[in-house]
Amino acid sequence: MKPRPPTLREKRRYILARIVPHYRRIEARQMYIAAFEALTSLWGDARASELQMAVISCEPGHCIVRCRRNAEVFVETALSTITEAEGERVALHPLATSGTIHALRKHIRPIPEGHPVDGIAIGGREYAGILFQRQKVDLYAKGIKNQETLYFTCDEMEVD
């Protein structure tokens, strides 16, 4: 089938969203499931079908979501209500909206690399974690059960 000429195509908008924590690796398909659940639960099926939302890419630290023009406000609001994707706790913070993916890519910042740290004691429990720039440390409780995550800074820990 012949593609539609550009003047007859529907106008689209692209939304760049920051994923927190940035090291969570989520597949685009799983992000789409999470975003669509948020969209339908907030705006209902009828409105969600009008918005034509799609996840274009989902890389560590950010994702790009496409929607119809004039629907970006609804999609951004729904993205703010995402709390979980692929069974992991995440948050999405919409950063910018544009008519082209190329323009959005200028807003993407490089992802800081983390360094593994070990032997951290907080409240009598042992934690391992990843140290990031600006002294951020994300900690995971050692063991199989109750692997809670804590978000701290270096100043607040006792490192062995």
């Binding site: 406000v73 951004e76 609001t77 703010s80 919409p94």
Partner: peptide, 12 residues
Amino acid sequence: LLDLRSVREITR
């Protein structure tokens, strides 16, 4: 920190 929202998101 996953529950905090930006001013832009709060407005939305």
